[in-house]
């Protein structure tokens, strides 16, 4: 623990509901410390607001270990905050210096309407999953997993894509609000699972259609992979088109 106290100016987006007008509010924190996370900085602010009878800032978080994907907000215009590939809960005050201004905004994407203050609705991502990001095996019917050989490297590669925490930063980082990194990661992961291969083409058709229904197109800028706290590799965006084209030639489900 350090005794160093920092003064930070917080500009925080306040919005009462999806259709309400939003605005920035400015607050000052004089006892921030470098090892605080940016979410703990918001905790500090909220503690102060509650003591002053002011409505605290609504924001979401849960595990605060970078795995649940619940936290998600823009910090000075960047999804999650200044450090690349780190979720908001892992971003720290040490990235700033005393006197700096830190601006908190909700993720900005057409597909993510604001619910309140810094909280947005990201269920669009899960509608892509529902469209086909699943494997149709009922409980109890699977064969012995040891009889299905999966190479070491294939399992590792599947996990590289499967690590997506579904936070939506890729969408927020994209100027078009595209969900290619998210969708591509799911398609790549499931195509590498033995049972996932059965519905590979059908899945690609339905997930891509649902993705295009709610999210924007990809211009291959690569902002998404820089923001991604799960380090989903950029080639995931190419997987979307690869799987789409592959599915186009296939008449079958696999």
């Amino acid at each position: 623990m350090t005794d160093e106290k920092m003064r930070l100016i917080l500009e925080v987006w306040r919005q009462d509901g999806p259709r309400a007008e939003g605005r920035f509010e400015t607050h000052e924190i004089t006892d921030a410390t470098p090892e605080m996370s940016l979410l703990e900085l918001l905790d500090r602010l909220n503690h102060k607001l509650v003591e002053e009878d002011v409505d605290p800032v609504a924001f979401e978080s849960d595990c605060r270990e970078g795995i649940c994907g619940t936290c998600g907000l823009d910090v000075n215009g960047v999804p999650h905050g200044p450090e690349d590939n780190v979720p908001a809960c892992g971003q720290h005050v040490r990235s700033f210096k005393s006197g700096d201004t830190v601006r908190f905004e909700p993720f900005r994407a057409k597909a993510f309407p604001v619910i309140r203050d810094l909280i947005v609705d990201r269920t669009g991502l899960d509608r892509i999953i529902q469209a086909g990001g699943t494997i149709a095996v009922d409980a109890g019917t699977a064969p012995d997993a040891d009889t299905l050989q999966v190479t070491h490297d294939e399992a590792e590669r599947a996990l590289d894509f499967a690590g997506c925490i579904g936070c939506g930063a890729c969408v927020a980082a994209c100027p078009n609000g595209a969900a290619y990194l998210f969708t591509g990661a799911k398609l790549a992961h499931l195509a590498l699972i033995p049972h996932g291969k059965q519905e590979r083409a059908k899945r690609a058709r339905s997930m891509v259609a649902q993705m295009e229904h709610e999210f924007g197109p990809c211009s291959q800028i690569g902002e998404c992979a820089l923001a991604c706290p799960a380090d989903i590799p950029l080639p995931a965006i190419a997987v979307v088109n690869r799987e789409r084209i592959r599915a186009g030639f296939k008449r079958k489900a696999n």
Binding site: I135, V137, A142, V150, A162, H189, L190, L192, I193
Partner: peptide, 8 residues
């Protein structure tokens, strides 16, 4: 494993 967990 069957429904998507890529076990090591």
């Amino acid at each position: 494993q069957a429904i998507g967990t890529p076990f090591a």
